[in-house]
Design a protein around this nucleic acid. Structure first.
Length: 549
DNA sequence: CTAGGGTTAACG
DNA sequence: CGTTAACCCTAG
């Protein structure tokens, strides 16, 4: 995984300069980023996100240099999530967050590629879920019961109802049954207590490698300026050939300064992986870019501060446009930092910690709800929710140590939901909040809802305590023109796959059984045969088959 | 969700 | 270059 395949440079306009070392691409010259069009920016960011050798802080800085108006496409969101998966992998840690990332990727995947999850994805998901449960069992029985309830009952039923439903494979059902047996019968627990983390990591690795090599990273644009050494690089960073106005120059200086601070923080932060990478390549990575003057100091401090709550960045009465920009940017920075650096910082978390605590940490001191929404829709599950789930599940299980069936647990789950019909932690309507956000900012969060995503409303049930929340795509105000433009470019047509004889046979039989037109039903009844086909595909295929025969 | 017209890409 | 299967878009 240390060396993901780099995209073949193609021949078109130069767009981005990368710094390479023996270990691969390790840095990025962002000085021209302001001149990139949306497509170039998306593709380039996607590229660097997929380069494990590029330290997180470089990725972070690249996002920082990106014009705020730049839309984050579903593809890019997916790439960010892949980055998180890769980080988990590098740190040899899988957790419930990893599970959630899979769910999010699957949802996004359905939006962008309209495909069902690959076998590799489902296997990896199943393995991560198993590993988490097994790890909990090794901890103690309470943790195991709690974990089982959270993952295999609550989360499972949430996914079933979510756009990520296709993630649930037969294998997952089987594993759930096995764990369920272990819940009922302590003697079986020994058999599931030692699920191999290595195997899980391998499966996640397989999945990532499959996805990363699946499609060209640069469908339309090319990376032309791969710089081989710092000498050449120096020439390249001089902004020659580009006319920058004063504002842009100031901005660039500011981002340099930000990068400098990130580096300092990173270096001071023991156990941070980025630091190791930096030390390995002290000058070839980004060293030269880290000169600059005070531009974003205040927002940087806010960013560097582990506190995530929404402080007002405009404490001095001096409200210029520049300040506004800083405010927006500082939110942006926090978002990126927590998304990308969170994984890197995991290394310094105590391994003995309760799995919920990292979330707690991310949200500690937070009394602003915006942030909470953002985190809930990215990698972190709302901490209070999670903890409540934990406690509740724990006590429930303690009170009913001899639960006789899964249904009973599910009953408990649903009654607990009914008991607190509208008690979301802050009594807020999340949808409304997000819409407000979207109105005021071009993009307040990298993980902001995909505009093309269908709405999956949870408002009338599961936002309350005792329930894990899944990603909830919502609409936001956005220029429809931009939207169409973006999606056209970024949503790829599926690769053509010939129908197999088995598929044709199955379809024929199914049509005689269920009748022509029940495509959804037919698909549902033959999910394994019609892997990665949609009901529309079935319909089209039937049209083809019946046209000439 | 389905039906049906439109588009794309593989193939002879 | 025409034909066709696979895939996409969207009205109803």
């Amino acid at each position: 995984m240390a060396n993901a395949p780099a995209p073949e440079p193609q021949n078109s306009k130069p767009s981005a300069s990368f710094v390479t070392t023996a270990g691969g691409v390790t840095g990025l010259d962002v000085s021209h980023i302001q001149t990139w069009d949306n497509n170039t920016a998306s593709s380039t960011l996607e590229f660097i996100l997929r380069q494990p050798a590029i330290p997180d802080f470089v990725v972070n800085a690249a996002f920082l240099a990106l014009p705020l108006s730049h839309p984050i496409s579903p593809r890019l969101k997916t790439a960010i999530l892949f980055r998180r998966l890769a980080s988990d992998l590098a740190l040899r840690s899988v957790s419930e967050k990893t599970l959630e990332i899979f769910e999010l990727i699957e949802e996004l995947d359905r939006e962008t590629r309209k495909s069902r999850p690959s076998q590799a994805m489902k296997s990896a998901y199943c393995a991560v879920a198993s590993s988490c449960t097994s790890a909990a069992l090794r901890q103690n029985v309470d943790a195991f019961l709690d974990c089982f309830h959270r993952i295999w009952v609550l989360r499972f039923s949430d996914i079933e109802k979510s756009p990520a439903a296709a993630l649930i494979s037969e294998e997952l059902y089987e594993v759930r049954n096995i764990f369920w047996e272990a819940v009922k019968d302590p003697e079986i627990r020994g058999l599931v207590a030692n699920i191999d983390l290595e195997e899980t990591l391998d499966l996640v690795r397989d999945y990532l490698e499959q996805v990363w090599s699946m499609e060209p990273l640069f469908p339309d644009i090319a990376i032309d300026g791969i710089v081989e050494d710092s000498q050449a690089r120096r020439e390249n960073t001089g902004l020659s050939g580009f006319q920058l106005d004063v504002e842009e120059q100031q901005f660039l200086k500011s981002s340099d300064n930000y990068m400098q601070r990130v580096v300092q923080d990173t270096v001071l932060n023991p156990g941070n992986r980025a630091r190791e990478l930096l030390v390995e390549n002290p000058e070839k990575t980004c060293g030269e870019q880290f000169k600059g003057n005070d531009g974003l100091d205040r927002s940087i401090e806010l960013v560097s501060n582990s506190e995530i709550g929404f402080g007002d960045t405009r404490t001095e009465g001096n409200e210029t446009d520049c300040d506004k920009e800083q405010t927006i940017r500082s939110n942006h920075q926090r978002m990126m930092q927590s998304t990308l650096l969170d994984a890197a910082n995991k290394a310094i978390e105590s391994p003995a910690k309760n799995p919920e605590e990292p979330c707690d940490e991310e949200l500690r001191g937070n009394d602003g709800h915006h942030r909470r929404d953002e985190m809930a829709s990215t990698s972190a599950i709302g901490a209070q929710d999670t903890i409540t789930v934990g406690n509740e599940a724990g006590t429930v299980l303690d009170k009913h140590p001899d639960l006789s069936c899964l249904q009973k647990m599910e009953e408990i789950h649903s009654t607990s939901v009914e008991k607190v019909p509208d008690s979301s932690p802050h009594g807020e309507n999340y949808s409304t909040k997000n819409i407000c956000n979207a109105d005021s900012l071009p993009r307040s969060s990298l993980m902001e809802k995909n505009q093309t995503a269908h709405t999956f409303e949870w408002t009338d049930s599961p936002l309350q305590e005792g329930r894990l929340r899944l990603h909830t795509p919502e609409r936001k105000a956005c220029s429809p023109l931009k939207l169409i433009d973006d999606d056209r470019k970024l949503t790829k047509r599926r690769k053509i796959r010939k129908w197999t004889l088995l598929e044709e046979d199955t379809l024929r039989k199914a049509v005689t059984k269920y009748g022509k037109g029940s495509w959804k039903l037919i698909l549902g009844a033959n999910l394994t045969v019609f892997e990665e086909r949609t009901e529309v595909d079935l319909k089209d295929k039937w049209r083809n088959m019946t046209r000439k025969n």
